[in-house]
């Protein structure tokens, strides 16, 4: 079952409808900064340029999110965020190309490429893993987290069993428990992401 602590409180997106809720905006930025930045960097932007685009996305969202109209045919929040980011990328490219010395449009040339949708989807998956790992580090004791991280980084079950002087079943069990918890956490996170006012409402996409 999804983690109740992630689903029973008023969702973050609902709180964002109140523009004076600075704590919610700060939390939103903290949560999505990395996803947007990494996506832009994968699109070929330098980190500093990616920061520009991310700030623009946040600025645009601060205007559009409080006035959303529910439209179930328009897709999920992640699709909306994707379109916002692509629009900001296009705007960034337009402004940059106003300068005669900067005529590089390669970063936005791939905007309608199906591979770009895959790239966004992969980064969105990575984003949810990052959030879930933050919880794993508090939900599990440090030793189990360390075992899992070492396994994730390529050390075999046998090597870990030797290193921690336990039998291999214990290592398998640790991995299994963390995997199951990650699955639960991610399911809850994704569910919350699509909740506005608790009814799954979503903002209309930006033009």
């Amino acid at each position: 079952m999804p983690n109740s602590s992630l689903t029973t409180h008023v969702s973050l997106l609902s709180r964002l409808r109140d523009t004076s809720n600075h704590r919610a905006w700060s939390e939103f930025q903290h949560r999505y900064q990395e996803l947007l930045g990494r996506y832009c960097r994968r699109r070929g932007l330098q980190a500093a340029d990616a920061e520009d685009v991310v700030q623009t996305v946040f600025m645009n969202l601060s205007k559009s999110l409080p006035q959303f109209v529910y439209d179930p045919n328009r897709g999920r929040f992640r699709d909306y965020l994707y379109r916002c980011t692509k629009n900001a990328l296009a705007e960034w490219s337009r402004r940059r190309n106003l300068r005669p010395e900067a005529l590089d449009t390669s970063a936005v040339a791939a905007a309608d490429d199906p591979a770009d949708t895959t790239l966004w989807r992969d980064e969105w998956v990575a984003h949810h893993y990052r959030l879930a790992f933050e919880r794993i580090r508090t939900d599990f004791d440090a030793r189990n987290v360390e075992i899992f991280e070492r396994n994730l980084n390529g050390e075999s079950i046998a090597e870990l069993a030797r290193a921690y002087q336990v039998n291999e079943d214990a290592i398998y069990a640790t991995r299994r428990r963390i995997r199951t918890r990650l699955q639960e956490l991610i399911a809850a996170q994704v569910q919350e992401e699509d909740q506005i006012d608790g009814d799954g409402s979503r903002p209309k996409p930006v033009a």
Partner: peptide, 8 residues
């Protein structure tokens, strides 16, 4: 240190 939002 670089200003937030850069060009924007």
């Amino acid at each position: 240190k670089r200003i937030s939002a850069g060009l924007f």
